[in-house]
């Protein structure tokens, strides 16, 4: 059900764009207004979400301690799995953000001959790494359309990415890697029974959406060619706030753009916010120095005490009247 709902939602976006691309005035909506709105939602939503997270107090040090903590000098400790200094936590964060170290530690449990055994499982890590890095490369390559002249590093990436020189235009390695990574990530939700059991529509939807974006991009490049000069004119116009809508770009471009707009607008309200969230995770970004430094709860205020002396002061007359003994007259 979750699969059908998300697949249906993605197909609906494709159909809307396909119809809209045939109608002149709607092209203006699909090519200019919707991308601007989506980008504004993306930036605004991203900031809102991070600020919202920033408001949550973290009263204690709660890093995950995945190794021996700082102790006696003769006990070997694990610097990066149980960091006590800033630079150690920075290394930990770097490895987390750039190498997905938590995913590398992924294990799976299996019953074999009545025994529960645990073993390494690197597929999630591999698929995630392939997907994220190719997505980054593809996003950077798109700067070719957004900036004139194209930055030098973008050309370098393009040359490396297309080094196999297969076909015209060249096939990119990142295209293949992205789809392979996505296939692994989607495949585990389909075929691993326990993952499938916990998968929801908001797990499938981003996967289908990004698969659709990649597919339309590849189709646009190899099968349903669009007028690239027109595309660059439109995109460059968007990025310089002088939007124009050239004629005859081709429907595939509008489908691609509407899908990307959907991704941008959906981003801040979904699990995709792990992009910002990874930096905001107290289980990763805190140093484990609970035993070296006193951490005071940030919203702690001294409680109001009402001591007996104050109580007696307040009710002395009444107490005397009722015959209750008082300490001071």
């Amino acid at each position: 059900m979750a699969i059908l709902v998300s697949l249906g939602a993605v197909l609906a976006i494709v159909v809307i764009a396909l119809i809209g691309a045939q109608v002149g005035p709607l092209q203006y909506l699909l090519g200019i207004l919707v991308p601007y709105a989506a980008f504004a939602i993306f930036i605004g939503g991203f900031i809102w979400r991070v600020v919202y997270w920033g408001k949550s107090p973290v009263p204690f040090r709660i890093p995950t301690t995945a190794g021996q903590e700082y102790s006696f000098p003769w006990i070997k400790r694990n610097r990066f799995d149980n960091p006590v200094k800033l630079w150690e936590v920075l290394v930990r964060m770097f490895l987390e953000v750039f190498a997905f170290r938590s995913l590398f530690r992924h294990t799976r449990a299996e019953l074999r001959g009545g025994n529960l055994i645990y073993g390494p499982s690197k597929w999630l890590w591999l698929g995630a790494l392939m997907f994220h890095y190719s997505f980054l490369v593809i996003a950077l390559r798109h700067l070719r359309f957004f900036v004139q002249p194209t930055p030098e590093f973008v050309k370098t990436i393009e040359n490396i990415d297309g080094m196999l020189q297969i076909g015209a235009p060249h096939m990119y390695l990142s295209e293949v890697m992205l789809l392979t990574g996505l296939a692994i990530l989607l495949g585990r939700r389909f075929f691993a029974p326990r993952i499938r059991y916990i998968s929801l529509a908001n797990d499938y939807f981003p996967l289908f959406l990004i698969i659709a974006i990649a597919t339309t991009g590849i189709l646009m490049r190899f099968l349903f060619r669009v007028d690239i000069v027109g595309v660059k004119e439109l995109v460059l116009g968007l990025a310089s706030f002088h939007p124009t809508l050239p004629d005859g770009i081709g429907a595939m471009f509008f489908i691609h753009v509407l899908l990307v707009s959907a991704l941008l607008a959906y981003f801040p309200f979904s699990k995709l916010m792990h992009m910002g969230g990874v930096f905001m995770s107290p289980t990763r970004n805190l140093v484990n120095n609970t035993r070296m430094k006193r951490h005071v709860n940030p919203w702690w205020t001294p409680p109001k005490f009402h001591t007996y002396e104050e109580y007696e002061e307040e009710y002395r007359d009444l107490m005397k009247e009722a015959g209750i003994p008082v300490e001071r007259e």
């Binding site: 993306f42 600020v51 900036v147 990025a239 310089s240 002088h242 905001m280």
Partner: peptide
Amino acid sequence: IIVGLAIFVGLVTSPIWLNKGKAAPK
């Protein structure tokens, strides 16, 4: 957090700054 957000917004809007509001002639 503000430094982090500023870096993020700066990066994703970089095409706008790099183009300086002028589209290259087609």
